[in-house]
Structure formats: structure tokens, C-alpha cells
Design a protein around this nucleic acid. Structure first.
Length: 377
DNA sequence: TAACCGTGGGT
DNA sequence: TACCCAAGGTT
């Protein structure tokens, strides 16, 4: 079957070969990760702990491996089993999640642990059973089914989308292309080692088939790839244009008591930073003109401008002017509470709030070293 | 369907 | 600097 000029490869005829190439590469080149059971251990009969697989998959949603590692270790130490997590206080879980972002994940994590513990402590071993649990969508259900329960599920994340659009030179823009990608992916998933196959696809996307400057020379699928030699792999996947990110402004108020305690309050359970702790702030308006003043403070005090901070959320940018006041006594508006200066690092403070407090009181949210913590004063 | 939902590292 | 985007889910 000679082709004129170009040498487009007919990889659609040998999906089993592609899976073999990938798994052979994975055996020698897989990443060692705290939540992962290595292929040699799987071959020796070791079974992954579904709790750890689930916990890692929730944390890894839209989050980098390096950011997850310390949180995964901390959660596993605090709550080694799903029953332990189910018995935890919601507030303790939110505190442990603080800084990781997408806080609805933490609320759903706790709700899911409660449901699993209530049902006897075992996770469902099917995609549909997993999919019914809070915080588990199509990707996570397939990932847990494949990795923890050895089921031939089609695990499709951002890495897999990138690898597949290059492998099959798919020009349809994302997210429209997802159905086509899934259909092709299902032909590749092997009946043996589906969990390793899923993780191998993600490792390939993370280390070889990267968004920019992919290492095609080292790719185990270079003989199978339709883009390679035909176009610049960096052009794939094609994405639909994204919406412009608007700007918002507001003010934050850091009230400091004589003993250094800071006035905090809890945000509503739903919506942005839902259920997390904050310093009092004004609303965050889209209005960029005009000045925010101390008039909007939660209570009258000698508010002084302490600085301003910027923060970028998923769908808008925020600039907050930060005011500070020293107050005496422990009076404060209802619904607020005082957090001791040496306990701030343990509060459920999202990063934007830590920034605001730091702007008013440098070092205030830093975790003290254990040796200085124990030293008598 | 599309908007909403965090954060940090890479380029 | 500005932009990309990461093991997505919910509403």
C-alpha cells in the first residue's frame, strides 16, 4: 500500500500493538508516585488500596502531581482509612485541604467517605457504582475502576486527550472532539493490565507527549503516531477559543487584637471558596473605577491602608486593597471569631486570604518551626 | 451547554 | 509579563 509523497501510518489497524508498545515503555519508565502500585508489585500479586487510589484521584483533579504529594501524605497520616476520614470533622478536612484549591472537592471528598463508610467501608468496583458517589465524575470513575479494580475502563483526562489527538491527528477542536477520542481510546484499552495502560497514557502525556516541546525522539509510539512527520505536534490538540478573563476589585480588613489575634469569619458553604475561612471583605465588584475606602469596614476602627494584593481565580482576576486596624477587647461583629496569632497557619484559609493577611502582617500565616515552637519563652 | 470553581509552576 | 494548563466535577 504505497502512498504518494506522504507516509501516513495506518495505526488504526493495530491497537493491540500500540498498547504493547506503551506498556513495555511503562515497565521501564513509569514514575514512582506515593499513591501508585508499581507494575512489578502488581505482577507479584499486590493489590492497590482503593482508598488511596480514590484519594489521589480526587486531589489530582486539575492539580499538579508536585502540589498533591504533601497533601496526600498529610491526609493519609491523619486519616489512613475511609472510615477514619468519615469519622473526621468537616472543619478539620477543610483545614487540611486549605491551599489545594477547588474546595468543593474537599466537601465532596468528605461526603463520599461518609457514604462509603455507611455502606460498609468498601468502594464500588464498577464505573457506574463509583460514578454515583459525590465528586466522582466520568474520568475519576474510570480511573478508579481501572487502577484499583483492574477493569478495562477508558480513562480519559487531559493527558490522554493530548496523546490521542496527536496519535490519530484529530483536527476537531476540544471539547467537541471528546466523543471521537473516547471511541478510539476504547479500541486501545487492553483486557490485561488496563490500570497500567491508563497510568502509562498519563505518564506518557506528562513526561514525553508534553503540551510544548514534546520529546518525540524518546516516544514509544513514534512509529504509531500520525502527526509525527506530518505536522507540528505542538499544534495538537486544537482547542476552542476561551473567554476573556474579567477583573474585579474589593477591600479586605485585617483587625488585630492586642494579643495578636485576628478577626475571621466563615464563608457560605456554596460558591467561591465555599466553606473556607476569610478576613472580612467587601463584595468583589466588576467595577474597576473609583476607590475602595475604609467606609466599607465591618465595624468602625482606625483602619489604615496596609497594601494591596492580586490574585487570579479560574474565571476572574481580583485586586484587593488591604486595611489594618488594631483593636482592644474582644468585641467583634456577630458571626466572626478571633484566631490566635500562633494558630493562623492551621485555619482553613485559602491562598488569597493568606495573601491579604500577609500584606497587613508579614509572617502572620507562616507555620512556626517545631524547634522554635517548643522553646520556652 | 456553558459557566463556575483555586492554585502554582512552566515558558 | 502574560499565558498556558494540570490525573475534572457540578449545576
Amino acid at each position: 500500500m504505497a502512498s504518494a509523497g506522504t507516509s501516513r501510518k495506518s495505526n488504526d489497524a493495530k491497537p493491540a500493538t500500540i498498547a504493547q508498545h506503551l506498556l513495555a515503555w511503562y515497565d521501564d519508565n513509569h514514575r514512582e508516585l506515593p499513591w501508585r502500585t508499581a507494575p512489578r508489585d502488581l505482577a507479584a500479586g499486590v493489590r492497590p488500596d482503593p482508598y488511596r487510589v480514590w484519594l489521589s484521584e480526587i486531589m489530582l483533579q486539575q492539580t499538579t502531581v508536585e502540589a498533591v504529594k504533601p497533601y496526600f501524605r498529610a491526609f493519609l497520616e491523619k486519616w489512613p482509612t475511609v472510615e477514619a476520614l468519615a469519622n473526621a470533622e468537616n472543619e478539620e478536612v477543610m483545614k487540611a485541604w486549605a491551599g489545594l484549591g477547588y474546595y468543593s472537592r474537599a466537601r465532596n471528598l468528605k461526603a463520599c467517605a461518609n457514604a462509603v463508610a455507611q455502606a460498609g467501608g468498601s468502594f464500588p468496583d464498577t464505573e457506574s457504582g463509583l460514578r454515583a458517589l459525590p465528586g466522582i465524575g466520568p474520568y475519576t470513575a474510570a480511573a478508579i475502576a481501572a487502577i484499583a479494580f483492574d477493569q478495562p475502563a477508558a480513562v480519559m483526562d487531559g493527558n490522554v486527550e493530548r496523546v490521542m489527538t496527536r496519535l490519530y491527528m484529530i483536527d476537531t477542536p476540544l471539547p467537541e472532539a471528546k466523543a471521537e477520542i473516547r471511541s478510539l481510546l476504547e479500541t486501545l484499552v487492553p483486557q490485561k493490565r488496563p490500570g497500567d495502560f491508563a497510568q502509562a497514557m498519563m505518564d506518557l502525556g506528562a513526561t514525553i507527549c508534553t503540551p510544548r516541546r514534546p520529546r518525540c525522539m524518546l516516544c514509544p509510539l513514534r512509529d504509531d503516531c500520525q502527526v509525527l512527520g506530518q505536522a507540528d505536534p505542538e499544534f495538537y490538540p486544537v482547542r476552542a477559543p476561551k473567554a476573556e478573563k474579567p477583573s474585579r476589585r474589593g477591600a479586605a480588613f485585617v483587625a488585630v487584637r492586642d494579643d495578636g489575634a485576628i478577626l475571621l469569619r466563615k464563608r457560605p458553604e456554596k460558591g467561591l471558596l465555599g466553606g473556607m475561612t476569610e478576613v472580612p471583605t467587601t463584595g468583589w465588584t466588576a467595577r474597576v473605577d473609583g476607590l475602595t475606602t475604609a467606609d466599607a469596614a465591618p465595624f468602625p476602627a482606625d483602619w489604615q491602608m496596609a497594601g494591596s494584593i492580586s490574585h487570579v481565580f479560574t474565571h476572574f482576576s481580583l485586586e484587593l486593597q488591604v486595611f489594618r486596624a488594631t483593636v482592644s477587647g474582644d468585641s467583634g461583629p456577630s458571626g466572626h471569631f478571633w484566631a490566635a496569632a500562633d494558630a493562623l497557619h492551621g485555619e482553613a484559609l485559602p491562598t488569597v486570604m493568606k495573601k491579604a493577611i500577609e500584606a497587613a502582617i508579614p509572617g502572620a500565616t507562616r507555620k512556626p518551626h517545631s524547634n522554635s515552637q517548643k522553646r520556652p519563652r
